[in-house]
Design a protein around this nucleic acid. Structure first.
Length: 567
RNA sequence: UGUCGGGUCGUCUAAUGGCAGGACAGCGGCCUUUGGAGCCGCGAGUAGAGGUUCGAAUCCUCUCCCGACAGCCA
């Protein structure tokens, strides 16, 4: 009996290579981020792919490798965040952490070897001159005047480049391939550039740094990678990847490209994410509105839900945009099964039960998770004064409104049925208190509890309530494609001004007061929430809304509004 | 008309010459002590034109559309 495995074109290649014993039965992948920013949801797809393929085969391994070849953009802070994020998504990473910068000496030796073979040369052209001589997409380039230097002169110059005798940008080491190649990447690409800048791990050891095209295949070769999986934009670079490895006659992994992950209403360019952080449009890389892995974690997403998304979307070479609703479905699916239920009143209005004995209190058992009997129950304190959500009362109820209104009844979740007798307002006409009576016979689970009322609402005992701040997040951008901006405008015009709503003075059931950062709950009838790492100045906890519950009432109201002609 | 790559429901993805299926989204209904969840149902697709074949999303030809590449970024 065999269950058909979910596969994709890359897994098919891997399986075929295994069948033909191409790499002696080895499977070795790698995830190679550049430490120049935080990882985002797009990287999760790659992490899942590379670690996933490795784990699907006995003896398969995956390296986390920092592609730290550009000291101008890279920082230790990013290294640290990336390690934490990869661990969170992939689970154990077996401490297989590597750095391209550790291979700089070996790379240099190979560069010397290429010079000796007459396949690389030192070029004195500056950046502008190189660009001009490269030609265009439709016209061939022209040879550099330095292309035919002797091996000795090249070796001498390369040595002096490394020693630091020349200023930034004055010289480069280039591969001698073909200035007329229809593939621009093959027109004598640059292997080393001079950059007098300290490296976050190498310090001042180097002032020449390898470019991606030169370095990446070497890194893969050194680590014995079998399948070097990258995104589509490197497809045109594969001939170059192959050329370097062949010219050096060293171990040759196989580069395979797949389509990167895009998300609707979201921006995933690291450059733009950095801009959002640096210009203060968000509070940081882990602002819960960001699409970074750190932000999803802080917002309350589970790694499982993100993995589920990655599995659902598959792997192909087709440019695609994933609908954010898939992400929302995935986290709801997970949290519905696992999240502890709680009652929280975000926008409180006081209810006084006039027939409930003054000073009396009782503990009512409430289910922790109706989806999971084994989660058991907890006791929620009940008393004469309660808070309910302002939204759950209407003085003039619209059609099909099942909640509280004057003279009408509702059930209080896990408690009694109450009837609203009197509405008390302040001078400005705002409702400040509801006077109600409760029916003692209708205690939840009791003998007369079966009486039908249309609605059930959540509540919190005023005497026992815990105060908290609650942050409601909405999508950061208003447009499905945030890059679609009017002529001359940037993506920033599409920022959603209401992406964050801060609610203070929210009333929570007491159990929530002792929740720890990262704890996730379903606030019944409202949504899923997660305890933030920060607290308010007064010490109150802060809850981040992960995602709303699917709200059928919102849809009914919306339709009602559409059907009612504007006054 | 430089090179490379890609086009299947709104979105993502199966079908690898043999009934175009699934998921998300949408819509309708049932149920409900969360207007949650759950259950049932509906609509929706092979870019176009030719060809090969008993049979084509799949193979061939042409056309159209989309993406990547002219950093000393990755």
């Amino acid at each position: 009996m065999s269950v058909p495995e979910k596969t994709d074109f890359i897994r098919d290649i891997v399986a075929e290579d295994l069948r033909t014993n191409k790499y002696g039965g080895r499977i070795h992948t790698r995830f190679p981020p550049e430490p120049n920013g935080y990882l985002h949801i797009g990287h999760a797809k790659s992490i899942n792919l590379n670690y996933g393929i490795a784990r699907e085969h006995a003896g398969g391994i995956c390296n986390l490798r920092f592609d730290d070849t550009n000291p101008e953009k890279e920082e230790q802070e990013y290294v640290d965040s990336i390690i934490a994020d990869v661990r969170w998504i992939a689970g154990t990473i077996d401490e297989r952490i590597y750095y391209a910068s550790d291979y700089f000496e070996q790379m240099y030796e190979w560069a010397v070897a290429l010079v000796q073979k007459g396949k690389a040369y030192v070029c004195d052209l500056n950046a502008d001159e190189i660009r001009e001589s490269r030609g265009t997409l439709t016209e061939p380039g022209t040879d550099s005047p330095y292309r035919n230097r002797s091996v000795e002169e090249n070796l001498n110059l390369l040595t002096r480049m490394r020693k630091g005798e020349f200023p930034d940008g004055s010289r480069t080491l280039r591969a001698k391939i073909d200035m007329a190649s229809p593939n621009i990447n093959l027109r004598d690409p640059i292997m080393y550039r001079i950059v007098h800048e300290d490296h976050h791990r190498q310090g001042s050891a180097w002032c020449i740094y390898p470019t991606y095209d030169w370095a990446h295949g070497l890194e893969d070769s050194i680590e014995g990678i079998t399948h070097s999986i990258c995104t589509l934009e490197f497809e045109n670079h594969r001939p170059l990847y192959d050329w370097f490895l062949d010219a050096l006659e060293i171990y040759h992994p196989q580069q395979i490209e797949f389509a990167r992950f895009n998300l609707s209403y979201t921006i995933l360019s690291k450059r733009r994410l950095r801009q959002l952080v640096q210009e203060g449009h968000v509070s940081g890389w882990d602002d819960p509105r960001m699409p970074t892995i750190a932000a999803y974690r802080r917002r309350g997403y589970t790694p499982e839900s993100i993995r589920t998304v990655c599995e659902k979307i598959g792997v192909s070479k087709k440019d695609s945009i994933i609908d954010v609703s898939l992400l929302e479905w995935s986290i709801r699916e997970d949290l519905n099964k696992h999240a502890q239920r709680a009652m929280a009143v975000l926008n409180p209005v006081k209810v006084v039960l006039t027939n409930y004995p003054e000073g009396q209190t009782e503990e009512l058992p409430a289910m922790n998770n109706p989806e999971d009997e084994s989660a058991g129950t907890r006791n929620v304190p009940f008393g004469r004064e309660l808070y309910i959500d302002r939204d759950d009362f209407r003085e003039v109820p619209p059609p099909k409104y099942h909640r509280l209104s004057p003279g009408k009844e509702v059930r209080l979740r896990a408690a009694y049925i109450i009837r609203c007798d009197q509405v008390i307002k302040d001078a400005s006409g705002e409702v400040i208190e509801l006077r109600c009576t409760y029916d003692p016979e209708t205690r939840s689970g009791g003998p007369a509890a079966n009486r039908k009322v249309k609605g059930t609402i959540h509540w919190v005992s005023a005497q026992h309530a815990v105060d908290a701040e609650v942050r409601l997040y909405d999508r950061l951008f208003l447009k499905e494609d945030p890059n679609e901006a009017p002529e001359g405008k940037s993506f920033l015009v599409n920022l959603n001004p209401d992406s964050l709503q801060v609610l203070t003075g929210c009333k929570l059931e007491p159990m929530l007061g002792s929740a720890a950062p990262g704890d996730r709950f379903q606030f019944e009838r409202v949504g899923y929430f997660c305890v933030d790492t920060a607290r308010t100045a007064s010490g109150a906890p802060i809850f981040n809304r992960t995602v709303t519950l699917k709200d059928a009432w919102a849809k009914i109201e919306q339709r009602g509004r559409e059907l009612t002609p504007a006054p």
